[in-house]
Each structure stands twice: as C-alpha cells, then as structure tokens.
Simulated assay, not measured.
Amino acid sequence: MPSPEYSLPDTLERIYKNQLALEAAIMELTLWAEDCKTSNVGENVRGALETIGENAGHIKQGLARIKQNGKM
C-alpha cells in the first residue's frame, strides 16, 4: 500500500476538503432547523456558512498558487 503524502499542499488540500464536508453538513442542519420554524437559528448559521464559503474560495486559490509554485 502506498504511503500517504504529507506535503504542505496535500495537507492543505485535506483541510479544504474537510471544510467543504463541514459546510455541507451544517447546511443540512440549517435546512432542518428552518423546517422546524427556528428561523433565527437558520439566519445565524447562514451567516456563518457565508464566511465558510468566502474562506473556501480563498483557500482554493491559495492551494492552486502553492501547487503552481511547487512550494512545500
């Protein structure tokens, strides 16, 4: 079995994928909370999700630059 790569770009890529998975899970909980008529909770969580989305874009661009430059 090949050993996993522990380079900085690989590690950051995994963090990014975790962030996307957490975003999806939080969205599911948000939809459930809104269905239960707890719109205040839904609004608060949507604000946090907006921040996650903005950061995800920044992380993705940073990863692309790191991989392009070959920095470790």
Rank of each mutant, 00 (worst) to 15 (best):
L49N: 04
Q19W: 02
K60H: 14
I59Y: 12
A48F: 04
N40G: 06
P2I: 04
E23L: 07
Q68C: 04
Q19G: 05
T51D: 10
N69V: 12
I26K: 06
T11R: 09
A48D: 02
I59C: 07
R46Y: 06
V45Q: 02
G62T: 14
A25R: 06
M72P: 06
A56D: 08
P9Y: 11
E34Y: 02
Q19F: 05
T11N: 04
A64Q: 15
Q61R: 14
D10A: 03
N55Y: 08
Q61V: 07
I66C: 05
G57H: 06
V45A: 10
I26W: 02
I52W: 03
Q19L: 13
I15W: 07
I66Q: 06
L31V: 13
T38A: 13
D35V: 02
C36D: 12
P2W: 01
E50R: 09
V45M: 12
I15R: 06
W32I: 07
P4V: 00
E43S: 10
A56W: 00
L8A: 14
S7V: 05
H58E: 14
T38C: 09
E23V: 03
A56S: 15
Q19D: 06
A56Q: 12
M72F: 12
K60L: 13
G53H: 13
N18V: 04
V45K: 01
C36M: 12
R46Q: 14
L29V: 01
S7K: 11
L12Y: 08
